[in-house]
Design a protein around this nucleic acid. Structure first.
Length: 787
DNA sequence: GAATCTGGTATTTTT
DNA sequence: TACCAGATTC
């Protein structure tokens, strides 16, 4: 490791003499300053949580541009999410002016690769309009293949196959490479190889790439076509990668390819880039930022070695450690440090702050997940009453399934919230249907998309006809679309034949317009011609009304897209949709509490954070126990969650948790014991005092002894504070309450109304319950009766 | 070929 | 609990 590259001293730097005079260096600490100014060929910034790494990264870029060391187009910055990319672009623009920042590539690995691949598609025999298969698409395809080969008899499930293919691709092992190393004596492996081969062939035939291919195919492109690689190696003179600890092998390989020098034969005579004595162009500079303690994507192939072995991979690399935290209180950092210290194979790192101790962490143990959720809702209300805006609070959980109880209670408590990620809009069946139409229009070779819409809406083309079509496509040596246009040759009934020809005509007509037509026009035309929306409206299934609304929402999305991208065409829209991530649609301006998984929380920060379900088998998750390095990764996940909090951290758990349908006793997470007891202020459920459970109280007070299993009485106590929330949809109609009214609540018992906010169906009552404390309730749907 | 019913099975995290 | 696949019936 060199401390400072020699040329830092020889290049005159007008700003270096008086750093304070440079606004881009103002307010930085010594380490941050070094990171912003470093001129190393390769720089690793080890940035602890909250250490201002985004600030460092944006200032580093801004400085390169402002001082004319590089043109914007020579910079490639890779972020983990599109949202992070947008934020970085915004911040750089803010520092040096938005025009000066035009032309940079700031995007995710996947977006950058799609951009390159669309441009170079013909090099590897695909068309520019290739489809991007998301995981659900991949699974659908694998499912069909598994079925055809009856691979389930060998114990090969769809998810197992999908997982294995993904893992192999992340290691840059394709079907052929796998064929060279697999165990030929194992029938399961033989079968797997066959599935892998067919899957690959089907993708190629469909002119489609799956998520993992986007990276792998780009690496392949660069390795197979040096002159193409040279194009990008010449162009990007500085590559920056954020969240480097979460890169997998394929992404690492991509970075390696991009930061290779260009051989003289690939350097054009008129190049304006400096060449060395041999006429070659030196490698691009590389800056990576990461924190091995925040590596939480090993399950997706992230390889922590990429960061640990950075100095070996890039000789002469400079390493700068950022440890001062500007986000959290010392109490929160003490807890985080204490937890992460239990991961033994890490480089010691201790976050510190000048902020001061701050509030203690609030701990809470509820009877049930509903009880826990009520605690979260009550705390949120208290904090909000104290002046903290809703959008400065976030609730984290390990699994998406945990949102249900939280949502129920938040709705009842009239707390505005939004769920990031989870069952996404684009995963809904009706949206996938319409998207399949768009995909089929953009990429006629995509058989998966055509199959999906073949009989949607119902037009009498069943499985038998579908098989006949597929066979006919093989005979023709063409695509499913070709077979559809030639449906008459199948000699089926006039009704079916007519339906197929009609569909073919609709698709062909739309396909003819994609180069010029606006996206909203294409969608509305399709909905019109297929009567998709019309049929949903006419349906007597009550859910279809909501589906119709969703489809309309999609049309609105296309309008919004077109507004933001006047030049955007169908393919661009499909790309954008395929690559949106959970955290991307985060809208900070909305005054709502954010709910998300711990994974989604990475990179974000809030004044108040609630980490829920801190229980064994949930955090750490049951499934992680069997995986090597699982518990350590779960600990990092907990660490990531803790370090998101600026001022106030809440850790909560439930003694029982219902999954599947039955309720199980839950034990507190092992990670709780790792936090020094004096940092946590344990609070009891209001219901606990009523049961006279001094044992419980003691347990909750400081040093949990973790023996709920024995202390929990068999059979739930029927107290007023029942540990359940009725899940029937209650509609109180136009029930009106006034201050002073007595009411009874199914869960909280009796209480007196102390305040009412009149707002039609959204009227909120503030109630002082006799034993359960003060609550805010949405009158219309709360399980209450007036007494 | 479509609609309805039933029983079995599964939930970790995501670009 | 909730969804899916397969069987049964129209």
């Amino acid at each position: 490791m060199t401390l400072l590259p020699p040329d830092a001293d020889t290049v005159p730097d007008p700003w270096q003499a008086e750093p304070a005079a440079d606004p881009l260096l103002a307010g930085l600490n010594e380490r941050q300053l070094a990171a912003v100014q470093s001129r190393a060929e390769a720089l690793l910034i080890v940035a602890g949580a909250g250490s201002g790494k985004t600030s460092v990264l944006t200032r580093r870029i801004a400085r390169l541009l402002r001082d004319r060391e590089l043109w914007p187009s020579q910079i490639l910055a890779i972020t983990f999410t599109n949202k992070a990319a947008a934020e970085m672009r915004e911040r750089v623009g803010h520092l040096i002016g938005h025009e000066a920042a035009q032309g940079m590539w700031i995007s995710t690995f996947h977006s950058a690769c799609v951009r390159i691949l669309r441009r170079e598609a013909q090099q590897f025999g695909m068309t520019q309009a290739f489809t991007i298969y998301d995981s659900a698409d991949s699974r659908a395809l694998i499912k069909r293949i598994v079925k055809e080969l009856q691979a389930d008899t060998l114990g090969l499930t769809v998810s197992a196959v999908a997982g294995k293919i993904s893992r192999l691709k992340n290691e840059l092992i394709d079907a052929d490479a796998f064929a060279r190393q697999y165990n030929q004596n194992d029938p399961t492996e033989v079968m797997f190889l066959e599935i892998f081969r067919r899957y690959t062939a089907e993708l190629t035939r469909a002119n489609a790439l799956d998520f993992d291919d986007l990276i792998g195919q780009t690496v392949y492109l660069f390795r197979a076509f040096p002159q193409v690689a040279a194009l990008y190696q010449r162009r990007f003179r500085h590559v920056l990668v954020d969240e480097y600890q979460d890169t997998n092998h394929a992404q690492y390989a991509l970075i390696r390819e991009l930061t290779r020098g260009v051989r003289p034969e690939h350097v054009p005579a008129d190049t304006r880039i400096e060449t060395d004595a041999t006429g070659a162009i030196p490698p691009a500079k590389l800056t990576v930022v990461g924190d091995s303690d925040q590596s939480i994507y090993a399950f997706r192939g992230a390889d922590i070695r990429n960061i640990v072995e950075f100095e070996r991979d890039f000789p002469g690399a400079e390493v700068i450690l950022l440890e001062q935290n500007y986000r959290s209180t010392q109490t929160i950092l003490d807890a985080a440090n204490a937890v992460i210290a239990n991961n033994f194979d890490r480089i010691a790192k201790n976050l510190f702050t000048a902020v001061g101790a701050g509030d203690k962490i609030t701990g809470f143990t509820g009877y049930s997940q509903h009880d826990e959720a009520q605690f979260v809702a009550d705390e949120i209300t208290t904090l909000h009453d104290g002046g903290m805006p809703y959008n400065q609070m976030a609730v984290f959980y390990r699994t998406n399934a945990q949102t249900r109880a939280l949502e129920e209670i938040l709705i009842r408590s009239a707390i505005p919230y939004r769920v990031l990620g989870g069952t996404k809009f684009y995963e809904r069946a009706e949206i996938k249907d319409v998207m399949a139409y768009l995909v089929a229009i953009a990429n006629p070779a995509d058989a998966l998309a055509v199959r999906r819409i073949l009989n949607t809406p119902k037009r009498g083309i069943g499985p038998a006809t579908e098989t006949a079509l597929a066979m006919h496509a093989d005979e023709l040596g063409g695509t499913l679309r070709d077979a559809l246009s030639d449906a008459a040759a199948l000699k089926l009934g006039p009704k079916v034949t007519g339906a197929m020809l009609e569909l073919a005509r609709i698709l062909d007509e739309a396909s003819a317009t994609i180069e010029t037509a606006l996206v909203p026009d294409i969608v509305t035309a399709i909905l019109e011609k297929t009567k998709y929306l019309e049929l949903l409206r006419a349906s007597r299934d009550p859910q279809d009304e909501a589906r119709a609304e969703n489809v309309e929402e999609l049309v609105a999305v296309t309008r919004e897209f077109q507004k933001n991208n006047p030049e955007g065409r169908l393919v661009d829209f499909l790309t954008e949709v395929a690559l949106v991530a959970a955290a991307d649609d985060l809208d900070d301006s909305s005054g709502t509490v954010s709910l998300m998984t711990l994974h989604t929380a990475k990179g974000l920060e809030y004044d108040a954070v609630f980490i829920t379900g801190v229980e064994e088998n949930l955090l750490p998750h049951q499934m992680s126990a069997s995986e090597p390095g699982g518990p350590a990764e779960e600990r990092r996940l907990f660490y990531v969650g803790i370090t998101r909090a600026r001022k106030k951290l809440h850790l909560s758990l439930a003694m029982t948790r219902s999954t599947f349908g039955d309720t199980q006793v839950a034990a507190p997470s092992r990670y709780l014991q790792e936090i020094p007891a004096e940092l946590i202020d344990w609070r009891d459920s209001p219901g606990m005092g009523m049961r006279g459970g001094s044992g419980q109280r003691q347990l909750g007070s400081s040093k949990p002894s973790f023996s709920y299993g024995t202390s929990l009485p068999p059979g739930k106590p029927k107290t007023e504070w029942a540990n359940r929330v009725t899940n029937t949809v209650r509609d109180n109609g136009d029930l009106t309450l006034e201050v002073g009214d007595r009411i009874r609540h199914d869960d909280f018992g009796e209480g007196r109304v102390t305040g009412v906010t009149q707002n039609g169906a959204k009227s909120i009552a503030e109630v002082q319950f006799d034993s359960a404390g003060r609550k805010r309730l949405l009158i219309k749907i709360s399980p209450i009766v007036k007494l």
